[in-house]
Design a protein around this nucleic acid. Structure first.
Lengths: 198, 198
DNA sequence: TTGATAAGTGAGTAAGTAATTACATACATC
DNA sequence: GATGTATGTAATTACTTACTCACTTATCAA
């Protein structure tokens, strides 16, 4: 029943993310989190001085998860196409594992209350685009991808693909496999980006 | 100072959208709206029975604006490519005119409190994708666009493009011209989708 | 000019919000 | 087994929220 501070903190962060998905990030009150865990509301402030600090911890948790997934994806493959596919797959996997992520990007906690969080997440999106751009550039130099397209433009198209599918999934009924549909469309876009050969 | 109910209603809706952009949709309190207008908070309830009804009116206003912009775009052009470009341009123009739109899609007002609004907006996105798909199909039949791509997939890629650029604009510093950058990337994607000719 | 109607006000209420406090108790360490 | 510390609680705080109601007053038609 009673847990160490470290494990309790982790539990709180997890519950916040789950609640954010279920009832929306801005409806996550300290009371709701507490009852979902099974402690009193005051107990939360044993572990986080303010609610903003709680959200900060949540953001760091998410950011670390994303960074780790990207690193893992890049270390796996060898060719640029394989690595591109792994990056996209990792991104979809992270979103599926944390469905509140798209909503979180637009929550007031992130955009208004905590300017630092906003910068953090915006930086994450930029970093992801940068990783994609590097692989696209490698593919272009290798002659696998069309060279008559700006590298960064191709990267933007790919990040947009992820966001577009994620939005459709998050706002809709979530009645399709996010990663499957996302990777299918990635292959379509990849065919468009491929250098022509006959 | 004193206005007719019709004009006051319209003013309230406008102010709500402006406030939603500035402080986030979920921080738009009846008090904040009232002081932004220059009336007391109680005055709002003269025109809308509940806050949910207010949001309903806001959603209808936005939906009507989008539908009108699409209709106008379609009536303008003649060829499928021209109409595609006009649809994309219209969408970017609407987002630029109502910057709260992307946030609104993910607000709790839309996603949790009012299930009807959620369905409305989700339907709008689907409708837009449908309009794009029709033009893409026409372009494919005319031999202007590649035929080896599923029509709906191309439409999804185009809506994703809009959403991706809009997200980058809304979450970033808004330091670039949304419509200009959006249309530039549209031309890039269009080149990828074009039937090859040499 | 007058009277009816519609727009706006001032002063409230009840329900929720994050945060604080004094107090209790489980748990590891000696 | 005693004891100090860290985790948790009950009660309460000051504040914000949407919403109500009895009232005032601007506006306009007769």
């Amino acid at each position: 029943m009673r847990k160490s501070a470290e494990r309790r903190k982790a539990e709180i962060v997890t519950v916040v993310l789950a609640l954010a998905d279920r009832i929306g990030p801005d409806r996550v009150t300290t009371g709701a989190v507490a009852t979902a865990i099974g402690v009193t509301q005051a107990a939360l402030f044993r572990h986080f001085p303010t609610k903003a600090a709680l959200w900060q911890a949540v953001a760091e948790h998410v950011a670390e998860g994303l960074a780790a997934a990207w690193e893992d994806a890049l270390s796996r493959g060898d060719g640029p196409i394989v690595r591109l596919r792994a990056l996209i797959a990792a991104q979809f996997a992270q979103i599926a594992a944390t469905p509140a992520l798209p909503m979180l990007l637009f929550s007031r906690e992130l955009n208004v209350t905590n300017a630092e969080l906003r910068a953090t997440f915006h930086g994450l999106l930029t970093a992801f685009r940068g990783l994609l751009a590097r692989e696209v550039g490698a593919g272009q130099e290798a002659g696998i991808l069309r060279g008559d397209i700006e590298t960064v433009d191709a990267a933007v198209l790919l990040t947009s693909l992820v966001q577009g599918v994620a939005i459709r999934w998050a706002l809709g009924a979530r009645d399709f496999d996010l990663q499957g549909e996302g990777l299918r469309l990635f292959e379509v876009q990849l065919r468009l980006l491929a250098a022509e050969r006959e």
